[in-house]
Amino acid sequence: MNNTLLSITIALLFGIGTFLILRKDLIKVVIGLSILSHAVNLLIVSTGLFNGEKVPIITGEHIEPSSGTIFTDDLANSILAPIVPESAEMIYVDPLVQALVLTAIVISLATTAFILILIYRIYEEYGTTDISKLRRLWG
């Protein structure tokens, strides 16, 4: 499935985030970082849509364990992952990207909180949130 509108939205979010991290005001920079991390998360999740239709929660029906799945670590052909023959149809959207993004969301909370406290402390020490004024950090 190809969703051009979503792609455009993600690209615009990237642009806005980039514009914000180029600002001198630290608070604006953090807002930019947040928008960038939203954009990245959306990007990763949207790539998981291509294969299946359903939410990756198994409801009732039983999945045949490893029906026709070949596992290989064929370095010579630069294949490091299990190969699934095309017949094995995927009915769910990709759960792995969701798991990755779930981790990313939580970590971005941690980093955002840390940066914000850092800005608070910078403001206390220097009396400003202007990056260009923080020359003492430059050594």
């Binding site: 294969n51 045949e64 490893s66 294949i79 992952a81 190969i83 699934v84 995927m90 759960p95 792995l96």
Partner: peptide
């Protein structure tokens, strides 16, 4: 190459 996700889908339950 195909995604690793199939493995998780199959083995989850």
């Amino acid at each position: 190459l195909e995604s690793l996700s199939y493995y998780f889908v199959e083995k989850s339950l």
